[in-house]
């Protein structure tokens, strides 16, 4: 390891417990590792297993990551209104939010906000909100220009069941028309 400058990417994902926040971070992290990056992921949550806030802080870097704390996120994924409010100031880059969960969006930086209707799409396409996190991950992959194939591979490794639906959900997010540059 060296103390030389190193580009680091900070990603912050937060929402309620049970929304698959940690799973999303895990897949993202593993995909980065498969491509030879170094990754840290801090996860923090309230004491309750379901319902409280859950946060995953990922740092991806080509070299050893010193501080694992996300202080200025390049991407912030907000799955809930409290999470959006709590961590808005920790982000200086893009904010992906689920408009069904986060209704009041701050006025500043409209160009940074990207609405991904993950919950709504999950309900429509799969009749199950549990797939919202994969739709969001697909969208994040597109938006951040990450390797889609690596993401799919990592997803299959991390998630034990329902591979076909999850792949389909990932695809829904990745091919979201609003995100594809004209």
């Amino acid at each position: 390891m060296t103390a030389a400058a190193k580009p680091r990417t900070e990603i912050l994902i937060s929402g309620f417990g049970g929304q698959g926040v940690i799973r999303m971070g895990q897949i993202l992290g593993l995909a980065a590792i498969k491509q030879g990056h170094r990754v840290t992921m801090l996860k923090s949550h309230g004491t309750e297993t379901r319902g409280g806030y859950v946060r995953a802080q990922l740092v991806i870097s080509p070299d050893y990551v010193d501080s694992p704390v996300v202080e200025n996120a390049d991407v912030f994924v907000a799955f809930s209104a409290p999470a959006y409010k709590k961590f808005f100031d920790h982000c200086r880059g893009k904010i992906l939010y689920d408009p069904e969960m986060v209704e009041d969006v701050r006025a500043e930086g409209p160009e940074r906000h990207v609405a991904v209707p993950a919950t709504q799409l999950a309900k429509e396409r799969f009749n199950n909100v549990l797939f919202a996190n994969m739709i969001m991950l697909g969208a994040l992959t597109r938006l951040s220009g990450l390797d889609y194939e690596a993401m799919k591979k990592a997803m299959l490794e991390v998630i034990p069941r329902f591979h076909e639906q999850n792949l389909a959900a990932l695809d829904v997010g990745y091919t979201l028309p609003a995100l594809i540059p004209a």
């Binding site: 971070g25 895990q26 992290g29 590792i33 990056h37 170094r38 990754v39 840290t40 992921m41 801090l42 996860k43 990551v65 694992p68």
Partner: peptide, 9 residues
């Protein structure tokens, strides 16, 4: 707690 709970490569 951070090191034991943290996920890392």
């Amino acid at each position: 707690q951070v090191i034991s709970d943290m996920w890392e490569d």
